Computed example of a mutant assay.
Amino acid sequence: MSRFQRVGDPHEQRSTTLELFYDLVFVFAVTQVSHLLLRDLDWTGLGQSALVLLVVWWSWNYTTWVTNELDPESGVVRLLMIALMLASLLMAVAIPEAFGDRALLFAGSYVAIQVGRHLFLTFAAAGRGTPERMRASRILIWFCAAGVFWIAGALADGSTRTALWLVALAIDYGAPRVTYLVPGMRRVTPEAWNVSVTHFAERFQLFVIIALGETIVLTGATTSDLELTTSRVLAFAVAFLTTAALWWLYFDYVARIAERRLELAPNRTQLARDGYTYLHVVLVAGVIVSAVGDELTIAHPTEALPDAEVAVVAGGPAIYLLGHVLFRLRMAGSLSRKRLGGALACLLAGLLGRDLDGLALAALVLAIVVAVIVAEQVTGRRRRARGEPSPLERLDLGAA
């Protein structure tokens, strides 16, 4: 057992003020990613923004797994979190020039977060010979291996930097898939992790809120700097309602059902890894792209948008809906046809949107997302009228 293990009933554990304080850094980081994408709306900019988002997500994600087990009331854990915040803030500051003059600050901060955290877990938090130390040491080895490529990439230039960073990213994201296998060492099994479901699911739900909140901030900041014409006010309203619809799609019932499925799963660690660690970043990416689309629509409500901007306006909600399809497929083993249809409809709207102005395109995408919500509500009412249990009730009946 860790020397700083959480105590008490795991079902009663909730996010702490320390964790919420830590999340504030990532509000800024997500905003930085949005601005990076907005600055370069081409394939290079898209690829760089995606890589930066995956780095930001991976640093937050691992800290969430750690705080799912460590006691936030411990002074030592608090100091660790504050140190991680500082390094995360430096990483976020470097994002606009992550592929330029601040590459070393960006990569170095990220490596310091990952390696530093697991040095603490390996040599300070876990006792000698414990499963916690074995687990932390294996993860540390993988982070050190990836760190070589992160730092080497920061010291290189151009395509060489990109190639080295892609190798580093592949190592980081591939490690959980092989359960941090290290040749010559005993393999870590999924049972080595103890997932406190309520706290764990809530933390990932809160990151979705962070992304949605960044959309609100970006929408408000953009509108406040521009002349308030009728079309711009309408574009502002459409942007806000789209963000509200994205919130509805996740928090109306998906979050609760997914949490319950995770609680009942015999393979809880693998399900948490796949559904939350890997797939939630797709949801976050969709929200970020939507935020950029909202800003473009508000700035140019009566103009026909260039192809790249049309792709962003329609692509953000499409990515978000597709993320939901993948999330349900992994958590429940079933296909969400309505959300898949919504994603495809958003992509079709993007093809048609080349002949529409920004406001009309955004309104069309909003109508599609709302149609998905309405269709699901109608299905739910018809199910209740037939006296059938809801998906959440079916889970509870099966567990009884």
Rank of each mutant, 00 (worst) to 15 (best):
Q114K: 12
I298V: 12
E259I: 10
A103P: 07
M185Y: 14
R39Y: 04
C346M: 05
V25C: 12
W60R: 07
L356W: 15
V238N: 00
A175L: 05
A363E: 08
V30Q: 12
V27L: 13
L352H: 03
I151P: 05
A136T: 05
A201S: 14
V148I: 13
A258N: 08
P131K: 02
L119Q: 10
A192T: 04
G213E: 10
G129W: 15
W57N: 14
H280W: 09
G158M: 09
R339G: 12
V281Y: 01
T44S: 10
W165A: 04
S334A: 05
R128T: 13
V233Q: 09
N267Q: 07
S159Y: 08
T302Q: 08
G316I: 03
T67Q: 14
E295G: 00
R102P: 11
G286I: 01
V66H: 09
V312P: 05
F207W: 07
V76D: 01
R203Q: 11
A291R: 13
G8N: 01
A235S: 03
G158S: 14
G275Q: 08
G316F: 06
D357M: 09
L322D: 01
I139E: 03
T16Y: 03
A399Y: 11
L20A: 05
L335K: 09
A237Y: 02
I209L: 15
G147T: 10
R328Q: 13
A255N: 14
A363W: 00
S34V: 09
G358P: 05
F106I: 09
W248I: 04
G47P: 02
W65Q: 00
D225L: 06
G341R: 11
A239Q: 04
R261Q: 14
R177I: 10
V115H: 14
E263H: 15
D23Y: 12
H35M: 11
D307R: 07
A308V: 15
V27W: 02
A126I: 15
V188C: 13
S224M: 09
N68H: 10
L218I: 10
S88K: 03
